[in-house]
């Protein structure tokens, strides 16, 4: 493995036949899709997690929560198929032209619209991690002692103030845990992403362009490692790298929690 050297991480050409292996596009793709998915999933799932027990009318609470939790049980290959046959047509017909028209001045929303792209993969990842973040943070919020809510209300807080100043802060570390769980799943997700990201070893500025993730590279190429043993070692190194990236991202996230709780003088 040592033969690949640092250029394995820094270069972008991935040509098994020529024996060139640069993992940079896959690393970027992995981080980009996960972070994009997280940035869409966190507001959505926290919104639902807070809305359902606090503000939703009684009869819809259980059913909605159950349905969302069921989403977590769907195999990722089914998500991939659904993405190809439903999500991508919808996005390419309605969403992407709209984004291009309105936000086309940003480099992220330019260029030809292919179906499979970094953005499509991020959106399917969002759908996949929302149930995780939602159900865990909902449990955490429900576990907040009723005394906390009563204390806030008795001091003249409105319902929303009680939620935002007492209940959510109390549950903060649990919610961050839920987000990290979602992030971990997004980083490692393979099947659905492989089916939707377009699988091209390339770093493009536009989110409409296809890309690659580390997990997808390994899954796609391992079965027929055309370049022989060197190709195989490159993929194994990729796996090690994926492991490293996951550990690193989690470590950074934990460090952030630690600093937040330290700075606020909590627990």
């Amino acid at each position: 493995m040592g033969r690949f050297g640092a250029s394995f991480i820094t270069t972008s050409t991935w040509d098994p036949v020529a024996g060139q292996f640069g993992a940079w596009p896959a690393i970027v793709g992995t981080l980009l899709t996960s972070l994009l998915a997280l940035s869409m999933a966190v507001p959505l799932s926290l919104g639902v997690a807070i809305y359902l027990p606090e503000f939703a009318p009684g009869p819809i609470r259980r059913p909605v929560a159950t349905v969302i939790e069921l989403l977590a049980a769907i195999p990722s290959v089914v998500y991939g198929l659904w993405g190809i046959f439903v999500l991508i047509p919808f996005l390419t017909t309605w969403v992407y032209p709209f984004l291009e028209a309105r936000l086309g001045f940003l480099p992220f929303f330019t260029g030809p619209v292919y179906g499979p792209s970094v953005l499509s993969a991020s959106i399917i990842l969002t759908v996949m991690i929302v149930p995780f973040i939602m159900s865990v943070s909902r449990e955490v919020l429900l576990a907040v002692p009723s005394g906390q809510r009563e204390a806030a209300l008795a001091l003249g807080a409105t319902r929303w103030e009680a939620v935002s100043t007492a209940i959510v802060p109390y549950a903060k570390s649990g919610i961050i845990g839920a987000v990290i769980l979602g992030l971990g799943r997004a980083l490692g997700e393979t099947m659905a992403v492989t089916m939707l990201i377009g699988n091209r070893h390339e770093v493009a500025a536009s989110l409409f362009a296809p890309g690659y993730t580390m997990a997808a590279v390994i899954a796609n190429e391992f079965a027929d490692a055309a370049g022989g043993p060197i190709h195989e070692s490159a993929l194994i190194l990729m796996a090690l790298l994926l492991f490293g990236v996951t550990v690193l991202v989690n470590a950074i996230a934990r460090l952030m929690i630690w600093r937040v709780s330290l700075g606020r003088g909590n627990t």
């Binding site: 002692p145 005394g147 009563e150 204390a151 806030a152 008795a154 007492a166 802060p169 606020r264 909590n266």
Partner: peptide
């Protein structure tokens, strides 16, 4: 104002 049965300070300073 109200004081409850169990002390319920917020987990703040």
């Amino acid at each position: 104002g109200m004081v409850f049965q169990r002390p319920n300070p917020f987990p703040k300073s």
